[in-house]
Design a protein around this nucleic acid. Structure first.
Length: 419
RNA sequence: GCCCGGGUAGUGUAGUCCGGCCUAUCAUACAGGACUGUCACUCCUGUGACUCGGGUCCGAAUCCCGGCCCGGGCGCCA
């Protein structure tokens, strides 16, 4: 029995064999074959196909039936084809992917680029990732919040900010929701997360940096130490990857990714162990210094050899970030790296007024400049901690992509503000 | 911010080192034609390019200088 079908989409390809023609139609669900044997369709429709060109938007009405195609289980024999809107030719890039285009050309024509199923797949995976991350955090009693992206002063220091004109005042785009998250801890929200934009005016030019990126940020109160935060993080990763693996079989297939779901608990290394290991391998690093890109990479290799993709580095020197809880010459900050790339930074924060003031001074900063921030420690601040987790970097590692720009629809990098 | 590399049809490339048979390669795209089972269809015909400005030279895609644009590394970070 034939089933009448209406299918809407873009002309992906036309193959005209003379007495039989094929239209490969594409939409968000995938590719479909429309078959036109000369003797089975009207003369009108048969010749109408000659007028079509790639990327025209069409509606096909016809009967769906089993075909002889190698790649399609069913094919549609059309009774009616309507041209909804024409596409100009030639196209600025090839959506069928036969001829490769450079990333820059693709990004200039991003709306056509994302018509390619393997590009769309990245964003379907991204969606699934966020859905499962939200579900996990929600189940763990985290409240989803949104904080302002317009701030009056730097929230962390260290990085350059984008200045903006806010009426008669100067303001900045936020580099992180850090201070607001802590404010929510002082506000008694206890467990919060934000899936947020952040902006960094660093002139880096690498395959793993964006000037506008997104992150999953969490903050939680009444923790014993940073291990509580790390526990949430590793379970978040484990649960999310499991969910993505179940949801996105077709997409992962298309992207040729075999997703490994890491077992919890993740491997934990201390900063001291990492430094010692790097020194043994002949990498020049002194205690107290940042690992550096090279150091991170060497460590990533070593961990992969030992069978770990994801691993924590904890007990950093106390000079890491000012708002982290100090402990002797160390602090309670941690990073989570994946295959040599930093994905997350987090830790237990200072929660006592005197400690945070000391820390600000220790970092050569002026407590006077942190008045609003310091206020939240004066009226009942619970012990707390959290992390910021870069979504694009995670996706990039998860899908083995070689450029973080692939993981965001409209990337902003050193030179790009359009489209 | 510092450093390195690049820019050839709509797209992706060969040619650049060592200037001249470059009237610039190939694929794809596009236009037209043939073909009743394609699935990177095949075949025939055609269209289309040396980033811009200056310089060297008899002669520049090729060498030199500057601009613009792009890619990448480092630092910093996620």
């Amino acid at each position: 029995m034939n089933i009448m079908d209406i299918i809407k989409g873009w002309v992906n390809e036309i193959r005209d064999m003379g007495g039989i023609k094929f239209i490969i139609l594409r939409n968000k669900k995938g590719l479909f074959q429309v078959t036109l044997p000369k003797k089975k369709v009207s003369h009108e429709i048969f010749s109408f196909v000659d007028k079509l060109s790639k990327e025209d938007v069409i509606v096909v009405e016809g009967s769906s039936q089993q075909g002889k195609s190698r790649d399609f289980d069913t094919e549609i024999i059309p009774e009616k084809i309507t041209l909804i809107n024409e596409s100009e030719t030639p196209l600025p890039l090839d959506p069928s992917g036969k001829v490769k285009a450079e990333l820059d050309t693709r990004l200039d024509n991003r709306f056509i680029d994302i018509r390619r199923p393997e590009i769309l797949a990245i964003f379907k995976v991204r969606h699934s990732l966020l859905k499962h991350a939200r579900d996990y955090l929600s189940n763990e009693d985290f409240l989803e919040i949104h904080t302002s992206k317009i701030i009056s002063t730097a929230s962390e220091g260290g990085t350059e900010l984008f200045p903006i004109q806010y009426f008669e005042k100067k303001a900045y785009l936020t580099q992180s929701p850090q201070l607001y998250k802590q404010m929510c801890m002082a506000g008694g929200l206890e467990r919060i997360y934000e899936i947020a934009w952040y902006f960094r005016a660093e002139q880096h030019n690498t395959t793993r940096h964006l000037n506008e990126a997104t992150a999953i940020d969490i903050e939680m109160s009444f923790i014993d130490d940073e291990e509580d935060v790390m526990g949430i993080l590793e379970n978040l990763i484990h649960t999310t990857l499991k969910g993505v693996k179940e949801d996105c079989i077709a997409e992962l297939n298309l992207l040729e990714v075999e997703l490994k779901v890491p077992e919890v608990p993740f491997k934990r290394l201390t900063y001291d162990e990492v430094v010692e290991m790097l020194q043994e391998k002949g990498y020049n690093i002194k205690w107290g210094e940042d690992l550096g890109t090279e150091g991170e990479r060497i460590l990533g290799k070593e961990m992969e050899n030992q069978g770990y993709e994801y691993y924590f580095i904890k007990r950093y020197p106390r000079n890491k970030v000012f708002y982290l809880q100090p402990e002797g010459k160390y602090c309670r900050g941690f990073d989570l790296d994946c295959k040599g790339i930093e994905l997350t930074s987090g830790g237990q924060r200072c929660h006592e007024y005197d400690t945070i003031v000391e820390r600000i001074i220790e970092f050569g900063l002026e407590p006077e400049n942190f008045k609003d921030y310091l206020k939240i420690f004066k009226y009942g601040m619970p012990p707390h901690g959290g992390f910021g987790f870069g979504i694009e970097r995670w996706l990039m590692e998860m899908l083995n992509l070689n450029n973080v720009r692939e993981c965001i629809l409209f990337p902003r990098d050193r030179g790009r503000t359009t489209p």
